[in-house]
Amino acid sequence: MAIASAPLRILIGKVGLDGHDRGVKLIARALRDAGVEVIYTGLHRTPEQVVNTAIQEDVDAIGLSILSGAHKTLFRRVLELLKEQDAEDIALFGGGIIPDEDVTTLTADGVKALFRPGAPIQEVVEFVKGLKWRD
């Protein structure tokens, strides 16, 4: 239960099997520098592990990086688990190699934002800062 003066808490992580962590680490550093409390999960997490950690750590949002093409399956699974655990107020966003039409589908499914190669980091920081605290 965050109070308004506390910093945002965000879980940043990699789900699935791919190990490309250049982008996710830059995002984690940039958010930390912007005063956000960042919990970085490390590599190769399952959706179950991510959602459990997010709930235990009482985060305001989850940001996931996927560059293996498994984004549809993995983002949907995370959304499903958040719903099952009654934690839909945790915002989900992400980034990776994601084609236009998958961005449209996943956003319709409930992913708040998807950032792709070339997206300025500042855009991600602004997006996160614009998120509401959970209450």
């Binding site: 699935g16 099997l17 093409g69 498994a70 399956t73 699974r77």
Partner: peptide, 10 residues
């Protein structure tokens, strides 16, 4: 189960 959604993609 860890392979779900990843098969043949990259």
């Amino acid at each position: 189960p860890r392979a779900h959604g990843e098969i043949g993609h990259c």
